[in-house]
Design a protein around this nucleic acid. Structure first.
Length: 113
DNA sequence: AGCGTGACGAACT
DNA sequence: TAGTTCGCCACGC
């Protein structure tokens, strides 16, 4: 049985578009918590992988992080590659532009100059 | 109820 | 620039 916190994390995962990645920190921010470590733990316990795209979650510095599913990190990299997200030496290529922020959904951002 | 652990992150050295 | 330390909070024992 999952906790409510974990379900919220897994729901956040569903919001990540294919071909994009996000970070544990972004998810924590989205959930309004500072418990970024707890987020990582929750993602790792995701029983719906890879149906729920837990592989699209990487570290803030652009590194892959870990993967508890079958195949481990190699599998995570392979899944990303299928979506057009390439990994070089454990790091996401063009990480900055691929990083998905949940606020991207708000299109009408005024982008204050 | 307290303690240790962890798919992390940012600061420090 | 790289490696280490500390902080964070949810969870299992």
């Amino acid at each position: 049985m999952a906790t409510d916190f974990q379900r919220r994390v897994w729901e956040a995962l569903r919001l990540i578009p294919e071909g994009r990645v996000t970070s544990y920190g972004e998810i924590a921010k989205y959930l309004g918590t500072k418990a970024v470590r707890a987020v990582g733990t929750a993602v790792g316990k995701n029983p719906y992988a890879p149906q729920v795209p837990c592989h699209r979650v990487v570290r803030t510095d652009g590194r892959i992080g870990r993967y508890s599913g079958e195949g481990g990190v190699a599998r995570k990299i392979a899944l990303l590659k299928k979506e057009g997200v390439y990994v070089r030496k454990g790091r996401i290529e063009s990480f900055d532009s691929l990083l998905y922020r949940f606020e991207d959904q708000q299109v009408t951002r005024s982008e204050g100059s």
